[in-house]
Design a protein around this nucleic acid. Structure first.
Lengths: 129, 129
DNA sequence: TGTTTGCTCAACCACATGGTTGAGCACGAC
DNA sequence: GTCGTGCTCAACCATGTGGTTGAGCAAACA
């Protein structure tokens, strides 16, 4: 994972771990302390604390104070960052599928036996149908 | 990143690298060969080939054949998987904000000096406008 | 046939990551 | 003040990851 220079890398990297995604899921239902978050797992409190640090540095959670406790709070705004990134390229790719589909349809109508590489789009035909 | 047992971990992990996100961006504009994808970067072809393997195992791209070339094709469907995961917890968290906001509003109306932990939601007050 | 092109596989290296344990800090309780 | 609780920091270890180079394969080209 190199050095995680940018925000998006940190966010994706943080969410690449099932335990951390699990914690995000739990935090979506309500704030929790480190101990509460650690309870379901068979790992040390220190390990959980490390996971939370990763999530915090990615901007996914914030940690406050309540006496000796450190309540963890989900900060759902970063999700927007990911969604925007994903949507951008998905739409771009889907638009490209549509154009390719039209071109292919024209080619088949005009000269069917010239399509020497039909595998390039057959998955799309299945999905489009 | 432990062992990447599930699909979602592989997808997030694949996208946690800026170079790989860059490749996805480029592939959204159209298929490309390994050499074409490697061109903008100051790394070996083998390194790029490894990146593509990661993307392929995450289900983000597919590699076909064209003589000695290996055209890479973006498979945008996995994006749905991520979007669904993100949306689920974002909505859950935002719903929670709304409820908390109502509770806080009631508390302040009834007994303002009993709010012993206002920091828990002050960021939300700013976002809610 | 031998050569070049485009790419993958294997081995290796440096460093990041996730886990551990031990120490220690900041509180609240006594 | 002393103790217990909740948590973090530091050191360490095993494994994973991204990079390298060298070898080698498949197809086009000569």
């Amino acid at each position: 994972m190199v050095e995680h220079d940018d925000r998006l890398s940190r966010v994706f990297g943080a969410l690449a771990d099932p335990t951390r995604r699990d914690m995000v899921a739990r935090l979506a239902a309500g704030d929790a302390t480190v101990g509460e978050l650690a309870a379901p797992y068979d790992v040390s409190l220190q390990a959980v604390s490390k996971h939370l640090k990763v999530l915090e540095e990615a901007g996914l959670v914030r940690r406050s104070r309540d006496a000796q406790r450190r309540p963890v709070h989900l900060d759902a705004e970063v999700f927007d960052l990911m969604t925007k990134w994903i949507e951008r390229y998905r739409q771009q790719a889907e638009e490209r599928y549509r154009r390719l589909d039209q071109v292919l349809a024209r080619m088949q109508g005009q000269d069917a036996d010239r399509t020497d590489d039909p595998e390039q789009h057959d998955r799309h035909e299945g999905a489009a149908g």
